[in-house]
Nucleic acid binder design. Structure first.
Lengths: 186, 186
DNA sequence: GTCTATACTGCGATAGAC
DNA sequence: GTCTATCGCAGTATAGAC
């Protein structure tokens, strides 16, 4: 079954937004990639603000689902952490695409208020989940030298997003691997 | 002594670029802030590519100087690391501005090739310097549990840049402090 | 749901007067 | 060194035919 136009547009827009940021893609770009006229996109997403809100909603839900899947398929904290790092690594697409939340953060001044709030909500969801991961790590002992789980979580999210930036800057996954080597060795 | 127009323009452009990314500011914005017409800016910087290259050159030299100053004024590895974190914290301007290298990385597709190279060169300069910091830390014992200095350096730069993103996303320095708490406790 | 056509604004950049 | 004026193009968005 073919995806409908709206979904296709979201897919294309997500790729574009994660590659070039909010200010770096236009309805014209999307139209060309989707094979329709740019005016037609307004039927599906009235404004770019509406489109970016839809992108964040879908992205938030998708990543939340990935976290749930990791919990279901990996028992130890160390395995879950490794799976999370692998997810971020795969999300890079060889250095082409960043986390949507990272890409939107730089264009923050161009975003609608509700989209800014969605970025904060996404980050909160992630740090909460990673905090729980480190709390498990303290109990099961599979991750070494955990201080405060919440502090570790904020540091870990920063490191993952920073590693994304590094790989994007060099268009090379090696940069991501170097930055996460210490994290994975714990 | 008043700074000349070219320096004023660089100052304004740096602030704008670090707040909103390469795609997020225009000659029109700079002209308004500088109190001249946008056509006049082309006299100082023929194209936006030339301007962004000048921004990266100046930024690279300035940060390199900061690192040298830290070496001159702080003896132990732990003190130097703390000073580096403090420098990144101050560079945030309360969450408004990012590291120029971070801000440009997202707009990478809009940059001239030589500017992309300057980003890579900046990152290389930083990781080299931080690697030396951790090598000193292994010798003087003021930083705990150092594995491979180079790996620690890549992880640390990622964490600092990720912490910058976090603070920018929330427009709140608290996010930076949370992300660097673990780093400073070492 | 997609099209053509268009309105309006802003962009980077150039030419030439002063 | 800065100005006015302008070019050519791309941006988001809308109106209305099909």
């Amino acid at each position: 079954m073919q995806p409908d136009t709206k979904t296709t547009l979201l897919d294309i827009a997500e790729k574009a937004a994660r590659s070039r940021g909010f200010d770096g893609f236009s309805y014209g770009d999307l139209a060309q990639a989707a094979g329709i006229r740019k005016a037609s996109i307004h039927y599906h997403f009235a404004t770019k603000a509406v489109l970016s809100a839809a992108l964040m909603d879908r992205y938030h839900a998708a990543v939340e689902q990935v976290c749930a899947d990791i919990e279901a398929t990996h028992q130890s904290a160390a395995d879950r952490l490794a799976a999370l790092v692998r997810f971020y690594r795969d999300a890079l697409c060889g250095g082409e695409t960043l986390c949507l939340c990272v890409a939107f953060t730089i264009s923050r001044d161009s975003l609608a208020d509700d989209v800014k709030d969605k970025i904060v909500a996404f980050r909160s969801m992630m740090t909460t989940w990673i905090t729980a991961l480190f709390e498990l790590g303290k109990r099961d002992g599979t991750i070494s030298a955990i201080s405060a789980p919440a502090a570790e979580a904020h540091a870990t999210l920063a490191m993952l997003e920073g590693a994304h930036l590094a790989a994007h800057a060099e268009h090379d996954l090696t940069a991501f691997d170097k930055a996460t080597e210490v994290l994975l060795a714990r």
